[in-house]
């Protein structure tokens, strides 16, 4: 009976462990579940940016047109096994590309709707000096599209997750694909067999 009671008391102690919070650097890599996380998003964005800026499509365009190319973000489809917020790494890419000074970004179709509404409102309510007219938008020269795919191989509690991110830059003038970016990530996820 003593053993029986000791076991119950030990269980109570184990069950009573509480929550702990530790603040950390945003660049620190922590893999908890094995799912796509901020580190994956950052790594993909960094690799894609380095690649897209090192390719000849920019210099070719500038020498031909005499100005920096305007790019619009189209759809980036999530075809993976996880609900991935693709907006975070698209935003990372947009920021780095704009900050490089070599590319201009124009608002996406959803953003444009809101801006046009605001412009209509300005037309009615803003002073003539500050009002922005319709019909002066910059048309995009290229559209960035892409997809995230995964292959998951499962054996019991072990999984190999293979992510492949493909981005394509397409010329709006003639549908030419001027850049193809690809990043692959492979993870071995071993799920716990025992918990406390």
């Amino acid at each position: 009976m003593r053993i029986y009671l000791a076991v119950i008391l030990s269980s109570l102690l184990i069950a009573g462990c509480g929550t702990q919070v530790t603040r950390m650097d945003v660049n620190e890599t922590i893999d908890l579940s094995g799912n796509w996380n901020d580190t994956d998003s950052r790594l993909v964005a960094e690799e894609m940016i380095t690649d897209v800026l090192s390719r000849p499509w920019i210099s070719n365009f500038v020498s031909k047109k005499g100005h920096a190319p305007a790019v619009i973000v189209g759809s980036v489809r999530n075809l993976s096994h996880e609900h991935i917020n693709v907006n975070t790494f698209v935003a990372d890419m947009e920021r780095a590309l704009i900050n490089s000074g070599r590319v201009e970004f124009v608002a996406s179709s959803t953003e444009r709707g809101e801006i046009r509404e605001e412009r209509k409102d300005q037309d009615l309510n803003s002073s003539e000096k500050t009002r922005n007219e319709a019909g002066k938008e910059v048309g995009a020269d290229f559209m960035l599209k892409g997809q995230i795919n995964t292959i998951v191989d499962v054996d019991g509690k072990e999984q190999v997750r293979y992510y492949q991110v493909d981005l394509t830059l397409i010329s709006m003038a003639d549908n030419r694909k001027v850049w193809l970016g690809q990043k692959k990530i492979k993870k071995l996820v071993e799920n716990a067999k025992v918990r406390y």
């Binding site: 029986y4 076991v7 025992v194």
Partner: peptide
């Protein structure tokens, strides 16, 4: 998903109570 691993403490509860 988190519960797919066997719990030591819960197994004790299950075998005792």
């Amino acid at each position: 998903n988190a519960l797919q691993a066997v719990s030591v403490s819960e197994s004790v509860w299950a075998t005792t109570i």
